[in-house]
């Protein structure tokens, strides 16, 4: 079943768009910003170098978001103009009728793809930073890198869970992308209440970012557990609805 879900995911043009953009964006930004970053590092205006390299792993998250959403939303896309009410989900559920096993297979396929993507991005970004700013890069901390990889995977699962509840791709993807790029509603909320630091997209980054951008002290482990709890809650709601709803 996992093989089938991998085949399904990797045969979708939208999934490849998510893979390409998510993989290339962070290394490209590192290259484009190289001169500016180096100058700032040399003249001491860069600030805390503890997150140098790792900070760049917060870029390109559109990749796991797209992959997480598309894994579910592709099931709900009408298969053609001749049969507007019919979706791929009908074929999926007649092939794999146990809904919870199907969801598990989908999640495993998604985690494998996003983890591979995150490993490639992390390797590229950290290597580039070492080449470009080797005198300033902090020593590699495997635990922090692993936390960054986990953040990518958790964000994909978070997007997956939202799409599972909404049964739609456009709405969750629009909200997720706007929130992570143009206007971060979660970040604005932190200006109103400290509780907003525990929103899933804000708290997750605290697993591997240590810099002073955050007012609220949250340990990496607490951040990881908080994000996991959010995802567990959304997945449980999504799985319950998926199990109960007519296809």
């Amino acid at each position: 079943m996992v093989t089938a879900e991998l085949r399904k995911l990797l045969a979708l043009p939208t999934a490849w768009a998510g893979l390409a953009i998510g993989t290339l964006l962070a290394p490209l930004i590192v290259l484009i910003n190289a001169r500016y970053t180096h100058a700032a590092l040399v003249d001491g205006t860069y600030g805390d170098v503890a997150d140098l390299g790792l900070m760049d792993l917060g870029i390109g998250l559109i990749g796991p978001m797209v992959l997480g959403v598309v894994s579910i939303s592709s099931e709900y896309t009408p298969t053609g103009e001749h049969s507007p009410g019919i979706t791929q989900l009908h074929a999926t559920l007649t092939a794999m009728p146990s809904r919870l096993r199907l969801l598990t297979a989908k999640l495993l396929a998604l985690v494998l793809v996003v983890l591979a993507q995150a490993v490639v991005v992390a390797t590229a970004v950290l290597t580039l930073n070492e080449i470009l700013h080797g005198d300033f890069t902090p020593p590699l901390e495997p635990a922090r890198i692993a936390s960054a990889l986990l953040y990518w995977v958790l964000l994909a699962v978070f997007s997956f869970a939202i799409a599972l509840i909404t049964r739609n791709g456009i709405v969750p993807l629009t909200v997720l992308i706007i929130n992570s790029t143009f206007v971060s509603v979660s970040y604005l909320l932190t200006k109103v209440t400290d509780l907003a630091y525990y929103l899933p997209d804000i708290v997750g980054a605290r697993m591997f970012i240590r810099g002073g951008a955050f007012a609220q002290p949250i340990s990496p482990v607490a951040a990881g557990l908080t994000m996991t709890a959010w995802i567990a809650l959304l997945l449980a709601i999504g799985a319950y609805l998926f199990h109960r709803r007519d296809a």
């Binding site: 979708l12 939208t14 592709s74 009408p78 053609g80 049969s83 009410g85 019919i86 074929a91």
Partner: peptide
């Protein structure tokens, strides 16, 4: 069932 059940972007 009605339709092919295939995602329209897939061969």
């Amino acid at each position: 069932l009605d339709g092919s059940g295939a995602h329209r972007a897939r061969s």
